[in-house]
Design a protein around this nucleic acid. Structure first.
Lengths: 289, 289
DNA sequence: GGTCGAGCATAAGCTCAGCTTAAGCTCGAA
DNA sequence: TTCGAGCTTAAGCTGAGCTTATGCTCGACC
């Protein structure tokens, strides 16, 4: 019988690319991962990995098995969720990941509602950029996460992750009437690798130019302070722009950002996940949208 | 993460009813099964078994988990079948179960065709009554089995077993024009617990009487010899009635028997299973139906 | 073109999950 | 009341699977 633990390692290898990265994700040594994958290959009776020097890539058979691993792990997740549901209402630790703006604006009322409704639940929040959410969910470091997706930026596209939409909000540009009008300005974006960074780049590309990025700042309050000081222009979401500093003029753009809850596929039936999504949605009407 | 091996034990317990029977099926000691199920309960966090004295029954939560176990094991079976397919054509051992008539009539030409088309395949045949097929398939003692279903007898009804129809044949009654006309005769049926036994009982019940069963004989040649000796009447399928002994008159009834190939759900994509079903079907046209 | 470091595999050793045997408990049947 | 079928618990042993240690390969960098 195929071992789901080994299948999980194979799936992680398919996503992360190196055995070392898989080992880090599951807090094993690379040696252990290597041994497990070798054993899986032996049981499979067909090469799954191609070793070329110091790198390793999946064979077509490997990719095929990853597809099946996905289905198996999803079913196991469903079974666990069903057990959690039969154990009773939401209880125990619930690890929540959130991007900074959500952590500040959405989570306080949501968590108040959540712990009020389910005293046995122990929510634990960690800040995380949406770009890293899929990996953290798959690795079991998080149970549910708040993420956003922008126009121009592909949404979470991971077969093992499921999302539930929460709300949308418009985007604003500082001090210019349109993205095209900021063609020759200095830009303030998020750090490379974050979703906010990609979002700004893609929006400018869609307007026909490559932005000149001068400052990499993740916190939108700081971004607005920079803009107020005339250091550049930036795109900010509504939630971060309810009280702009004096001297910053915001123009609403035909761009939007959607916020979603993400969790492992098959885990949606888990009562704690359901309670969290409900709490998030309950908190949304109180937001200054 | 839930362990599929433990889930398999729970599923077997749901079918077989006692820990001792499960242990016998998987060739463990009852102690090992008991320990594994206790561990599963601990991981599940909810009672799955109810111990009342020396017997054990599944709780509702236990039954729920069995449903999920079924889905998980089916996905694992699919994954294994996909690997077997990617390994190449049908090869290796293939354990085939068959009821006696099929073993004598259908299997010789089917196996000739099978090994001719796939020399790397090593078919191994074991005679088995259709009533025991599901358990043997689930336990992994067989890979594919020939079974039959009669009118009046419910077909294989096991969520973990899948069937592929092969052929149907009419049934015959010895020395009487109809079942109703044999109301007061002595009957020859299969041994209690076999499908042939149930079939005869149900057919008589449908005709409005309870048969007086005097002889329990499984082999249809022997049955016909008994009938020729005037020891009773019997229902025989066409395949067993192509050369009745002198003195036995056969009447074709509006009853039929269907022969099917059975295998574990999810295993249908296994190349050896596919090849076997094809071979069975190829052999059917040569049968004296 | 050496040198360094990142990445993977193998060897050796150790720990613990999971099996067996043995013994005890419970309950229905004779 | 005794016996046996069935489950659990205790104790011990083996092997799967982890770690550490070591060696190999190859691209990057001076």
């Amino acid at each position: 019988m195929l071992d789901p633990r080994k299948l999980h390692l194979l799936r992680e290898l398919a996503r992360r690319g190196t055995i070392a990265a898989v080992a880090e994700a599951v807090t094993f040594t690379p040696s252990a991962v290597s041994q497990q994958l070798s054993a899986l290959e032996r049981e499979a009776g067909v090469p799954l990995l191609e070793r070329t020097g110091r790198t390793v890539t999946l064979t077509p058979a490997g990719h095929l098995l990853v597809e099946h691993a996905q289905a198996v792990l999803e079913q196991l997740e469903r079974a666990s969720a069903a057990l959690a549901a039969v154990r009773g209402g939401p209880a125990g630790p619930l690890r929540i990941g959130a991007f900074p703006t959500a952590a500040r604006v959405l989570l306080p009322p949501a968590l108040a509602h959540l712990t009020g409704a389910h005293p046995a639940l122990e929510p634990r929040v960690a800040e995380i950029d949406p770009a890293d959410v899929s990996a953290a969910l798959r690795a079991g470091e998080l149970d549910v996460a708040l993420v956003h997706e922008y126009d121009f930026v592909p949404p979470v596209t991971d077969a093992s992750i499921e999302t539930a939409p929460l709300f949308g909000e418009p985007m604003y540009l500082t001090d210019r009437p349109s993205v095209a009008a900021a063609r020759s300005d200095a830009w303030i974006t998020g750090k490379p690798g974050t979703l906010c960074h990609s979002m700004a780049i893609r929006a400018c590309q869609a307007a026909g130019f490559e932005p000149r990025v001068r400052h990499h700042v993740d916190d939108f309050d700081t971004v607005l302070a920079f803009a107020a000081a005339g250091l550049g222009v930036a795109l900010v979401p509504h939630l971060a722009a309810t009280a702009p500093p004096p001297g910053v003029r915001l123009t609403r753009l035909p761009l939007s950002r959607r916020t979603l809850a993400a969790f492992r596929k098959g885990n949606g039936a888990h009562p704690a996940i359901g309670a969290a999504v409900t709490a998030f949605r309950t908190a949304v009407p109180h937001l200054p949208l």
